[in-house]
Design a protein around this nucleic acid. Structure first.
Length: 441
RNA sequence: CGGAGUGUAGCGCAGUCUGGUAGCGCACUAAGCUGGGGGCUUAGGGGUCGUAGGUUCGAAUCCUAUCACUCCGACCA
């Protein structure tokens, strides 16, 4: 992409409304625009990141055997009355009526609808286990939206629902998602810790939050520091026994402040005690027959008798992750994107846009990188160098290449690593080769 | 939902207390000088002061209502 053809309205000054780094940088980098309290328009740069995160989440769900679909944002109140949640959910649910005065709602979650879909098609235990997911916008009318996209009212969420014949089978599904989440967050470039959680209003008795540590986190987290060292499982056979991956993590103490047990925490060796702030980026629940019971979602078992299915739901806050990743990865100059979610791979800075030599080098590099799929952003504007440098630092692409007349005279251009600050002078060809290798390993 | 604030140009703000016909910086437009970390000069354009009433000869400024947004708390992907 050429900057001259793009729409990336960066701000020099920090908007007064934003108080935390991720919100400030998202506004300054022109990623989002607030349209209403907790409701954002995703501008091109932010949209790219959102889609990258979404795609990684999708790929990891697919690997775990979940099947993608798409349910509507607007739901009829009927199903919610059937499960009793229409009254239970309270004012957080946005209720609307259509022209026929029928009660509708903008979905805050989809357990009721997916259970309805399930019960209308699935008749036999032979169709199980089944995991269905979608990535769809949700609306929860929060009392107090804040922190930009981290606590919006409208947000993009991946929600998976599992259906199993009994509790033992349901636990396997739970473990699959547990492992899928570890892999997902690792690919997103963040260290997420599974923490025992309160099942909350969704109900159930097996529940974990996945939190990443960041100073601006909304909850306190206490855990065994080994949890931060464990590598994600990576490529695994999801039909195999996953309990090793899960159990060794569950064995270590980890809790948010509301479930914190001082005595259990004190039992951790002193040098392994970790207490910090955390951002919840995922939450998984096993809730048994909470929905399948009242909605009569049952299948015929091998014993010839109907069995109420045992369910779970598994959420990842996709739009929240955009902010959360920035919270976990930024410096005083701006965002530092992990490679996997960066909106572009490499920034190309042409220091003198009216110079034939620098233009030629930039054009060649731009075309080489584009062909290799590195997705460069070429700053071909006539702004001064300083403006280009600081803008590039702000939007946080993994690498920035500086092409200027001074370097060209010596046959070199400069490649800077955004995360480490390390700079190297290379010939244009060597730079292209280096950058392409960085993104194809 | 309790408490505290803020709405003046695209962004950041001053002006409000003490009423007199709206200003600064950045950004934007034009020209020129510049050119390796947010440059300089000159000349421009842009605002029914959140909205609606009221008081007054006169309201950004005082009064009333209302809307929106932010922050702190209690709650949440």
């Amino acid at each position: 992409m050429r900057l001259s053809n793009y729409f990336m309205p960066v701000l020099k000054e920090t908007p007064a409304d934003a108080t935390i780094a991720s919100h400030q940088y998202m506004l300054r980098a022109g990623m989002v625009r607030q349209q209403s309290a907790g409701i954002y328009a995703w501008l091109p740069l932010g949209h790219r990141v959102l889609k990258k995160i979404e795609q990684i989440v999708r790929e990891e769900q697919d690997k775990a055997g979940a099947v993608e679909m798409l349910m509507p944002t607007i739901q009829s109140a009927d199903l919610w009355k059937e499960t009793g949640r229409y009254d239970a959910y309270g004012p957080e649910m946005l209720r609307i009526t259509d022209r026929g005065d029928r009660e509708m709602l903008y979905g805050p979650t989809n357990e009721d609808m997916i259970t309805d879909i399930f019960r209308s098609y699935v008749r036999s235990y032979k169709s199980l286990p089944l995991m269905l997911y979608h990535i769809q916008w949700k609306f929860r009318d929060e009392r107090r939206p804040r922190f930009g996209v981290m606590r919006g009212r409208e947000f993009l969420m991946k929600d998976t629902y599992s259906f199993d014949i009994d509790e033992a089978a349901a636990r396997k599904s739970y473990y699959k998602m547990f492992v899928a989440y570890l892999n997902t967050f690792a690919r997103l470039g963040i260290q997420a810790i599974p923490v025992k959680a309160d099942p909350g209003p969704i109900g159930g008795d097996l529940s974990h939050e996945f939190v990443i540590l960041a100073e601006s986190g909304e909850s306190g987290v206490f855990c065994h520091s080994d949890l931060l060292e464990m590598a994600a499982p990576g490529e695994v056979d999801f039909d195999s026994d996953l309990s090793d991956h899960v159990d060794k993590r569950m064995a270590l103490y980890a809790a948010t402040d509301e479930k914190h047990d001082e005595a259990a925490f004190a039992a951790i060796p002193k040098d392994k005690q970790m207490s910090a702030r955390g951002i919840e980026v995922g939450h998984i629940f096993y809730f048994g027959d909470k929905y399948s019971g009242p909605m009569k979602a049952d299948v015929m078992g091998s014993d010839g008798k109907p069995h109420t299915i045992m369910g779970g739901s598994y959420g990842i806050g996709v739009s929240r992750l955009v902010g959360a990743i920035i919270e976990a990865s930024h410096d005083e100059n701006g965002i530092v994107w992990p490679k996997s979610v960066a909106p572009f791979g490499v920034g190309i800075i042409n220091l003198k846009s009216d110079n034939e030599d620098t233009n030629a080098v930039c054009e060649t590099l731009y075309s080489q990188l584009s062909k290799a799929g590195v997705d460069p952003l070429y700053d071909d504007s006539s702004d001064r160098g300083g403006v280009k440098f600081s803008r590039m630092d702000l939007i946080g692409l993994p690498f920035a290449v500086t092409v200027g007349p001074r370097g060209i005279k010596e046959g070199v251009i400069e490649v800077k690593n955004r995360a480490t600050g390390e700079r190297q002078s290379l010939t244009p060809d060597a730079a292209a080769k280096f950058l392409i290798s960085e993104f194809t390993s």
